[in-house]
Structure formats: structure tokens, C-alpha cells
Nucleic acid binder design. Structure first.
Length: 521
RNA sequence: GGCCCCUUCGUCUAGUGGUUAGGACACCGGCCUUUCACGCCGGCAACGCGGGUUCGAGCCCCGCAGGGGUCACCA
């Protein structure tokens, strides 16, 4: 049997991190079994512009490298892949269900159903629809229509016995049929509902494994009922635990974006992102610029592999120690058997830790490539970049060491990209390192003259020069290092001083020191 | 409330009858050091509760408690 899995996003305008986890597991399972992964658009209830609302989602998938074998934009042999375009198939299924007696036309009004429900509730019992507006024959129907009633189609669910079903993750689960309602599968306006559509599509698209979040577990009985009634072979079901809010066991919801910002770690991550966005003069749309949404990470320069690696471990593990997985290793090792049953909280800090590690491992050349678009977006480098950009950025990334944790962090080191006379000095640092120390400007001036005559303006020789200077003047190394740093970068913190000097070169270093000296005079 | 699911450090988890209950993130010390990062060393910290079964239970059984999901002419 060919393994075929699917992810069915509804076009909401953004890709939710919990959704990505579900998609990832589907994708991994398909890839691990040499099968296909498809995307199907759940737009049965959409009125707005589906294309516009779908684009960020597809972009997110592409960015993460979760490629789909069939679906929007690429098509496939089981299309169309938009539920809004598959209505004929749903109608046919409804007719078949009606014909076999597995479903019926119901002429009750919403109010009447509601009244029954409330009556059952006050009686303390469980609601079971009386089916008194059920129309079995044309005559019944005609009578109701004459009264001006409209009809929906309901499933005629069993009311005795139980469904025993084997879930790939939950194992055996049992549902008493008496607990099920006669769910509506077709609205009064004759459009069909999600559960019907989903079952029909899964069957027609030959989905072998339905891997979805736990919140669908209790929807499974009605779907199995539909599938059975239609004579479909059942797919395997695997219900993943949902992703929970940080520090709680509530389901991470797309509707509570604001709430999560109250979480300290979340807020901190967002603030970091905002700092980067601000430097690029990027409009920060509150709806999307949020760590629950994948766009956020893309916008500020996270690595897709870091996100995938983190999400993989949210509810799945290989053993007691392996944490890092390349894409290939994920595919090689992933299995549904090792998926956890309990919900897992989304932990922004741990995601960041994976990002840090992934960034550390990134070769300089690739780091340069990641960082460049941010410098261009901020207006520091032209597009296309001048030919000396590569070597210059390589030096900077090399000197940066592990300081650039997110590609957008490069913008913290704007001092390498502004003209000497445009450099902005932190007043506080100028005060602390130069103005408040009587001897500091003098010492800096003297060291400046040494720099002017140093033979090789390279990190190693610069360090020798400075050490010699310190020994000769009988000062502490800190007395000069910090003064030089603020003079050439305007900041209190930065890369190694000697590397910084070397990158800037003699001319620019001297110009900046001179300017700083002017400023503190 | 009915039904269903879940329960090991703060968080992600390993663990399938005998372990000093392991790892990771976070946190707290210390070291390194020209700042900031990185790195290194060390530390804190968990089997929800109660009954069984067993020589022995985090692991098996039964209760309880807690948490969550779901109960739409939403998806």
C-alpha cells in the first residue's frame, strides 16, 4: 500500500506553529515510507479571497522545505485540491447516504432543535434528537415544505452499541454510539459541511493515514460512520497530542495571540523580533508578527531547520539523548510509535536554543548568505551587492563568532556599514569610557598614533601593539580597550576589538577615533 | 454536565518490575576573558494521590484527584 498523508489548511492568512507541527509529522511519515504528502485547501466556509489568504501558508511551507506532492499550485491526479471546487463529489455522497438510509432530510428549525436540547438539559438527561421533523418520504417532505420549512441533511447515527477503534497513537479507543448526535452534513443552502467533505476527499485522494491533532479524536466516530456507510475502506487514524500554550496545558489557539504575549518568554522573543524589524523599517503587523505564526520567524531570520528540529521534538523523541536531527535524519528515524500521548507546551526559549545551535553550525559562507538580505532590507547594502561585499561580510561573520543568533541580529552591528561621519555614538558609553576619565582621551590619542604607524594592520599585530602600549604606559588593559571600542563602534559591546579594528582598516579606524576625540573634547 | 484523552524535574523528554530515575532547555554558582556572546566545570530540580499484585513498582491492575479536548447548519 502506498502511504499518502495530507494536511488540510484553511486559508486564514497565516501559518500557525501548531499546524506546522501536524504538517511536519504528516510530511515525515509520508517521506519515511516513500509515500506522498498532499495539501488540500479547506475552504468550505470561506467567503473572502482564498488566494490571498492561502499565499502566506504556502510560502511558509516552501520556506520550511515541506514540499507537497499534490495540491494547490502544482495540481495532481486527484484534484481539484480546493474543497470549494469539489461540491459535486460531496453532493453525490449525500445522495448516496440518503438513498441508503444512512442520512435523512430533517425539517426542524434551529430553534426547535435548540428547544429539545435545552429540555434535555433541564431534565438532566442527555440530548437525543426526537427526529420528529425527519422526512422519510416525498409526501412527508412536501408537507413540511408546505409549512414553509427548510431542510438540512442529517446523519442517521446508530443509537446503541459502541465503536471500537484502533488509533495508531492512542491505541484502542471506544465510543458509545448513544453519545453521538445526528450530525448535519448538508446545510439548508445545500452546501456541505467539513466532516462529510473531509471523509469524501480523504477517500477520493486515497489518503492512507489521517494524522491530525487530538481535537479531532471525538470527531472520528461520525467520520467512520460516514466512511462505512459509503462503503469506503477506512484509513488509519493517528491522533497527535495538541501543542499547548507555554507554561500551561491549554491548546495553543490561533485566536489568543494577544494572550501569549503576556508570557515572559514569548514577549522577550517578540521584542527581539521587533528590534530587528524596526531596523528594517518593517511594518509590524500585530496579527502576524507573533511567535505563534511562522511568518515571524521567517521575517527576522530564523533557520527553517531549527524550527523543524524543535517541532519534531515536541511530542516525539528518538531516545534519551539525541536532540539534533538533519532533515534526512528526521525522515530516517521518524515513526508514529514514538509519538507521545500527552500534550506538549510550546517553549519559546527552547526553540531559540535550537536556533542558536543551528546558527553556530552554519558555515560562514551560508551565514553570509543569510545575513545579506537583512542588510539590504535595512539599506546598508545595495541590491545586487557590490563585488567586495562577500569577503567583507565573511570577515564580519567570522569575527562575530556566535553573536549572531538570528540572521537579523546582524543589524545590531550596523557600525560596520555606516560612514565614519554617520556613526552614532552611545552617549552613556562615551561618558563612561572617555568623558568621565580624565586620562582617557589622552591615552586614546596616544594609542591612535601607534595605530597610525603599525606595520601590519591585522588582528594579531594590533593585539601585540596594544599589549606593548599597555605595558609601556603602565595602565590596565581595560583603560584603553573600552575607549577604543566606543571610539570605533560607538557602542559598549561588540566583537573582539582587534578583529573589529582589522575589519574597519586603518583609515576608518583612525577617522573614527579622531571623531570621537572631537566629540569628547 | 455527558463522552473521550492525558498525568516523570519549571519546560521538552528517556524509562516497559530491581536505575544513585538519565539527557536537553531554562535557572543558580564558578572558571575563561578587552566588552558581549561562546565554551568549560559544578549545582538545584520530577515519578499527582490512595489502594492492590509482587520478594520488589515510575513501570502491571483498580479507584480517586487534577489537567485537557470535544459536544455547531465552524474548520
Amino acid at each position: 500500500m502506498t502511504v499518502r498523508t495530507r494536511f488540510a489548511p484553511s486559508p486564514t492568512g497565516y501559518l500557525h506553529i501548531g499546524g506546522v507541527r501536524t504538517a511536519l509529522f504528516n510530511w515525515l511519515f509520508a517521506r519515511a515510507h516513500g509515500g506522498q504528502f498532499l495539501l488540500r485547501v479547506d475552504d468550505t466556509d470561506q467567503e473572502r479571497n482564498v488566494d490571498a489568504a492561502l499565499r502566506p501558508i504556502l510560502d511558509g511551507f516552501r520556506w520550511l522545505g515541506l514540499d507537497w506532492d499534490e495540491g494547490p499550485e502544482i495540481g495532481g491526479s486527484h484534484g481539484p485540491y480546493y474543497q470549494s471546487q469539489r461540491n459535486d463529489k460531496y453532493q453525490a455522497a449525500v445522495s448516496a447516504l440518503l438513498a441508503s438510509g444512512a442520512a435523512y432530510r430533517d425539517f426542524a428549525t434551529t430553534e426547535e432543535i435548540q428547544a429539545e436540547r435545552e429540555a434535555a438539559q433541564t431534565a438532566g438527561g442527555q440530548f437525543t434528537y426526537s427526529r420528529r421533523w425527519l422526512a422519510e418520504t416525498k409526501q412527508d417532505a412536501a408537507k413540511f415544505i408546505a409549512e414553509g420549512r427548510q431542510s438540512v441533511v442529517r446523519l442517521k447515527m446508530p443509537r446503541t452499541g459502541e465503536l471500537v477503534h484502533n488509533d495508531l497513537i492512542r491505541e484502542e479507543v471506544r465510543f458509545p454510539w448513544s453519545n453521538e448526535q445526528d450530525h448535519v452534513i448538508q446545510r439548508a443552502d445545500s452546501t456541505c459541511l467539513y466532516h462529510l467533505a473531509s471523509v469524501v476527499d480523504d477517500h477520493e485522494m486515497q489518503i492512507s493515514h489521517v494524522i491530525r491533532a487530538e481535537e479531532h479524536l471525538s470527531n472520528t466516530p461520525r467520520q467512520i460512520f460516514i466512511a462505512r456507510s459509503l462503503g469506503y475502506p477506512l484509513p488509519e487514524y493517528a491522533h497527535l497530542p495538541y501543542v499547548a500554550e507555554p507554561g500551561s496545558k491549554n491548546k495553543l489557539s490561533k485566536r489568543k495571540l494577544d494572550k501569549y504575549l503576556k508570557n515572559k518568554d514569548f514577549a522577550q522573543l517578540k521584542a527581539h523580533g521587533e528590534r530587528i524589524a524596526e531596523r528594517m523599517r518593517l511594518a509590524v503587523d500585530a496579527d502576524v508578527f507573533n511567535p505563534v505564526i511562522v511568518d515571524f520567524y521567517q521575517a527576522i531570520g530564523f533557520l527553517p531547520e531549527a524550527i523543524l528540529n524543535y517541532l519534531l521534538l515536541l511530542g516525539w523523541s528518538l531516545d534519551d539523548k539525541t536532540e539534533e536531527f538533519s532533515r534526512e535524519e528526521m525522515i530516517e528515524h521518524f515513526s508514529l510509535e514514538r509519538v507521545n500521548k500527552a500534550p506538549a507546551s510550546f517553549d519559546p526559549q527552547k526553540l531559540v536554543a535550537f536556533q542558536d545551535r543551528a546558527m553556530q553550525k552554519l558555515p560562514i559562507k551560508q551565514k553570509v548568505a543569510k545575513v545579506l538580505p537583512f542588510l539590504q532590507a535595512a539599506g546598508y547594502i545595495e541590491n545586487p551587492p557590490p563585488c567586495d561585499t562577500g569577503p567583507y561580510l565573511s570577515q564580519i561573520c567570522e569575527a562575530a563568532g556566535d553573536r549572531i543568533k538570528i540572521a537579523g541580529d546582524i543589524l545590531d552591528y550596523d557600525d560596520f556599514f555606516v560612514a565614519d561621519d554617520q556613526l552614532i555614538y552611545e552617549e552613556k558609553t562615551l561618558d563612561k569610557r572617555l568623558r568621565s576619565r580624565e586620562q582617557a582621551p589622552q591615552i586614546l590619542a596616544e594609542f591612535r598614533d601607534r595605530l597610525a604607524i603599525v606595520e601590519h594592520f591585522e588582528a594579531a599585530t594590533l593585539e601585540e601593539t596594544l599589549k606593548a602600549f599597555v605595558a609601556e604606559k603602565e595602565i590596565k588593559i581595560g583603560d584603553i580597550v573600552h575607549a577604543v571600542r566606543v571610539a570605533i563602534t560607538g557602542k559598549a559591546v561588540g566583537f573582539g576589538l582587534f578583529e573589529t579594528l582589522a575589519i574597519l582598516g586603518r583609515e576608518r579606524s583612525l577617522a573614527r577615533i579622531d571623531r570621537a576625540l572631537q566629540l569628547v573634547k
